[in-house]
Simulated assay, not measured.
Amino acid sequence: MTAAPLPGSVVERVALFGALASAFHGAHLWADHWLQRPKDAVLKGLHGDELVYPSDGTPASEVEVPREDETPVPARVVGRRAATAHVLTYAAGQLVVTEFVARVLGLRLPWRARVAGAVINFGTHWIIDRRRFLLWLAKRVNHKDTFIAYATVMRKPGSAPDTSGPGTALYDLDQGLHKALGIVAAAVAARLAVPGSRRRRRGASC
């Protein structure tokens, strides 16, 4: 028996998936680091009710003279704001790259497909960068919490080990999960861009 040729919609969808997955992967570090403000990188993981200053996350209890031009707010609020600001720039950068790739390659990419990919990456990126879900997941997948505790970085002599920045296990797990979810986003976007039947017709040659 000869294999039936793949429908044109499937070929187009697979080609689009490959282009989007490559674009998302290639643009990830640029959007995640170059577009992220240093302030957001430091503050996006803050949690709890302790009052801190929004500009740098300094606990109000550690400041002898209250700052006149800044009002302390709960740490969780500062963390959420920083994570949202970061992910907004990330999503914007991704949309720009997606538009560029689509135009250069002449790909048919409806806005609903572009937005779907951006929303998936936006939502999952925010949750991962807030860290609690990532730490929860790490404990349940191959005991990665022990890896996180082991692979830390000493930034300065005498300082506390950095457990989440570049070079640490948590950072590597963070990046790996972002990139894996980028594949999901690319698949969903490609499916929405090129509709078609998922099932082979009955009686078709194989």
Rank of each mutant, 00 (worst) to 15 (best):
M1D: 14
T2H: 11
T2N: 14
A4F: 00
P7D: 03
P7S: 08
P7C: 12
G8Q: 07
S9H: 02
S9F: 07
V10A: 00
V11D: 02
V14R: 09
V14P: 01
L16T: 06
F17V: 03
F17H: 05
G18I: 01
A19H: 04
S22F: 11
S22T: 10
A23R: 02
F24D: 07
F24S: 10
H25C: 08
A27I: 06
L29R: 13
W30P: 10
A31K: 03
D32W: 00
L35M: 15
L35K: 10
Q36F: 00
P38M: 07
K44L: 08
G45T: 03
D49A: 14
E50P: 01
L51H: 09
V52E: 08
V52N: 11
P54D: 07
D56V: 01
D56C: 03
V63Y: 04
V63N: 07
V65N: 09
P66W: 03
R67K: 10
T71K: 13
V73R: 08
V77S: 02
V78P: 04
V78T: 00
A82C: 00
A85L: 05
A85C: 08
H86Q: 01
H86Y: 02
V87M: 06
L88Q: 05
L88F: 09
Q94L: 13
Q94K: 02
V96H: 11
V97A: 15
T98H: 06
A102I: 06
L109T: 01
L109Q: 06
P110H: 10
W111T: 12
R112N: 11
A113G: 08
V115I: 15
V115N: 08
A116I: 11
F122E: 01
G123P: 09
H125F: 05
I127F: 07
D129M: 01
R132Q: 14
F133A: 13
F133K: 06
L134K: 04
L134D: 07
L137K: 08
R140E: 01
V141S: 12
V141H: 13
T146L: 14
F147H: 15
I148F: 14
A149L: 04
A149V: 07
Y150P: 12
A151M: 14
T152Q: 15
T152V: 13
V153C: 04
M154K: 14
R155H: 12
R155W: 03
K156Y: 11
G158P: 07
P161K: 15
D162V: 03
S164V: 13
G165Q: 11
P166K: 11
P166A: 09
P166D: 09
Y171V: 09
Y171H: 13
D172F: 04
L173S: 06
G176E: 03
H178E: 00
A185E: 11
A186T: 04
A186C: 05
A187K: 05
R191N: 05
R191V: 05
L192E: 09
L192R: 02
A193I: 04
V194W: 06
S197V: 01
S197Q: 10
R198A: 10
G203H: 10
G203R: 12
A204K: 13
S205P: 06
